[in-house]
């Protein structure tokens, strides 16, 4: 599976290894494709659709689509950017997000993507859902208001922590994250050091203590836009 595959992304020829997804190969080449549900250590999921690109003219998610010889990928175009902006916008209005006092503000990938795409206020109307907050656990809480249903915790708990604490219940707009107990997180075998907690891209799974140890203004994405680390690698070459 290690043969070299050459494909084109935004007019630039890029080489990747067989078996890689577009997202991985692009990243190795220093091309950042925005994403939310995708995370290196997790299996591809393809639910948020932020990494949508055009593959030979057809929309596909870069996080799930395998690279192939001579494939032409379009990622950095106004058409694709408009779609991504809409999706990010949708994720904001679907939940109840409190950036101004959220524990994750500045480290939040959703917020950072919004800034990268120049979104300062959503264009879609707020849906103001009523969602349950689970404060039962002494060290962790679930705020479903801020959940974007990316399944990172589902995958991380199952594959990295080997516990399978989280899973989705319901469907459509009523889909929500649930825990492996009657209803409360404290009744599961979750541990505060579990990967499932730290891997949440937003403020839906939070460690109760020390959330404000690093002040606003000095957090990860306060210094540079999301994706900069990947793009720097390219510029350095």
């Amino acid at each position: 599976m290690s043969e070299t595959i050459t494909f084109t992304i935004d007019g630039v020829k890029v080489q990747g290894a067989g078996g890689q997804t577009i997202l991985q190969a692009a990243q190795d080449a220093g091309v950042y494709i925005p994403r939310l549900c995708a995370k290196e250590e997790l299996s591809p999921f393809g639910s948020c659709r932020v990494c949508t690109v055009l593959v030979d003219g057809r929309p596909q998610t870069a996080c799930t689509y395998p690279i192939a010889e001579d494939m032409i990928v379009e990622s950095d175009s106004e058409q694709v950017a408009a779609i991504r902006r809409d999706i990010i916008d949708m994720l904001f209005v679907e939940g109840n997000h409190y950036c101004m006092f959220c524990e994750t503000s500045g480290d939040c990938e959703l917020q950072a993507l919004a800034y990268r795409f120049g979104i300062t206020a959503p264009k879609f109307p707020y849906m103001f859902p009523k969602r349950e907050i689970d404060m039962s656990h002494p060290e962790i809480f679930i705020d479903r208001d801020r959940c974007i249903l990316c399944a990172r915790c589902v995958r991380a708990s199952r594959d990295l922590d080997e516990k399978a604490v989280f899973q989705f219940v319901g469907r459509g707009p009523d889909k929500r994250i649930a825990v492996n107990a009657e209803s409360r997180l404290v009744d599961t075998n979750i541990d505060v050091t579990d990967e499932a907690i730290s891997i949440c891209p937003v403020g839906a799974l939070i460690r109760k203590k020390g959330s404000y140890a690093v002040p606003y203004g000095q957090r990860k994405y306060d210094h540079e836009p999301i994706g900069s680390d990947i793009e720097k690698a390219r510029k350095a070459e």
């Binding site: 948020c48 459509g172 707009p173």
Partner: peptide
């Protein structure tokens, strides 16, 4: 479609609600 969307992906789960609105 709002009723029958599985809710897996963002555009269908959220977009249909917004279209109907």
């Amino acid at each position: 479609f709002v009723e029958e969307s599985c809710g897996y992906c963002t555009p269908c789960r959220v977009g249909n609600v917004l279209l109907k609105e």
